[in-house]
């Protein structure tokens, strides 16, 4: 009985045709859609999750795989601010208010700047990039993200020569994020969620400041209104619902490092040869597929990023 699932989940069948049809409609009526979105912004209301967001696909950096079903990508999430279970984020997501929202880019920079979210979304040309998201829990999804390289923002604020790392901080608000309440859902992680990258990792052209996915405004459970996506690292490295991006000289202490240093290192590059203490990283299950598939070094982005780590012992710096 279960074997039949394989047939059901053939790539061609998980193609979300509705999505593509919709996207064509959006392109056709693109002007009207954009005008509508602009009205929402003018009213000070958040664009509804699922509102169209147009961006041309950057084929050069996109994988050729069929995207995971949108429903899976929005109902199977690790976003502890909403709760520890996979279905908590979709259920609690309505609590998050994404307008007004600002992102402070500060620290060791010559021109610190606090961006209004709508200003940030319009500051640089948006593009669509189909990346593989590999969770440390050995599952993965193929997601068409919309955003622009984080490096564009970082260059605008002009990091000083002392800046060596970039620290990302997620919104702290237990009312909007019930998972941050002490005791009940929370416990384990120290809030706010802090993540970090080396400056060269943050400046890498693959590192995407992300405001949408699947041709839509980023849903709350996926890290609205703005998150990063670092496709060669495990998913938890890609901080969500960011309010502060700080350039610093010391390696930031990240949330998961603080919670379980023996399980989650600062680098957390996808690496099939370094096991997590509780599970092997050699294989993964693509959501929607039946069989596990081998995990690729740097999640398949080795050609682009391996040079960042030449001379670094990746077994020690996991």
């Amino acid at each position: 009985m279960l074997i039949r699932r394989t047939e059901r989940f053939k790539a061609s069948e998980i193609t979300d045709e509705k999505l593509y049809l919709n996207r064509r409609e959006f392109i056709a009526g693109g002007g009207a859609a954009l005008a509508l979105a602009a009205c929402d912004v003018a009213d000070g209301a958040a664009p509804p999750a699922g509102a169209p967001l147009k961006a041309a696909r950057n084929d050069g950096v996109s994988v050729k795989e069929v995207p995971t079903k949108l429903e899976s990508a929005t109902t199977y999430n690790n976003f502890y601010e909403f709760g520890v279970n996979k279905d908590d984020p979709a259920r609690e997501a309505h609590r998050l208010k994404t307008r007004p929202w600002t992102v402070a880019v500060e620290g060791l920079v010559h021109k610190p700047k606090t961006y209004d979210i709508d200003e940030l979304i319009r500051a640089f040309p948006l593009e669509e990039r189909v990346y593989v998201l590999r969770c440390v829990e050995a599952w993965s999804m193929v997601i068409p993200w919309i955003g622009f390289p984080l490096g564009a923002v970082l260059k605008q604020v002009e990091p000083t020569s002392q800046a060596k790392f970039v620290e990302f901080t997620t919104l702290l608000d237990p009312v909007q994020f019930p998972g941050q309440k002490p005791g009940f859902f929370g416990g384990g992680l120290e809030w706010p969620y802090v993540e970090g990258l080396r400056l060269d990792e943050a400046l890498h052209p693959l590192t995407l400041l992300t405001v949408g996915m699947y041709g839509q405004v980023l849903p709350n459970q996926n890290g609205a209104p703005v998150r990063i996506v670092v496709p060669w690292k495990y998913g938890f490295k890609s901080a969500k619902s960011i309010v502060r991006i700080r350039l610093v000289s010391e390696q930031p202490k990240t949330a998961w490092e603080k919670a379980a240093p023996q399980e989650y290192g600062f680098y957390s590059n996808v690496n099939p040869t370094v096991s997590h203490p509780r599970w092997s990283q050699a294989t993964e299950r693509r959501i929607g597929e039946f069989r596990r598939r081998p995990t690729l070094m740097f999640n398949g982005y080795a050609d682009q990023v391996a040079s960042l780590y030449s001379g670094l012992d990746l077994k020690k710096h996991y």
């Binding site: 009985m1 039949r4 059901r8 990508a73 109902t75 996979k86 279905d87 599952w139 299950r285």
Partner: peptide, 19 residues
Amino acid sequence: WIGRALWLHTDDLGANPIS
């Protein structure tokens, strides 16, 4: 749930049915 997921394509088992 398995029957519904296989024949009616419902999402009773979630995005990761095996898990």
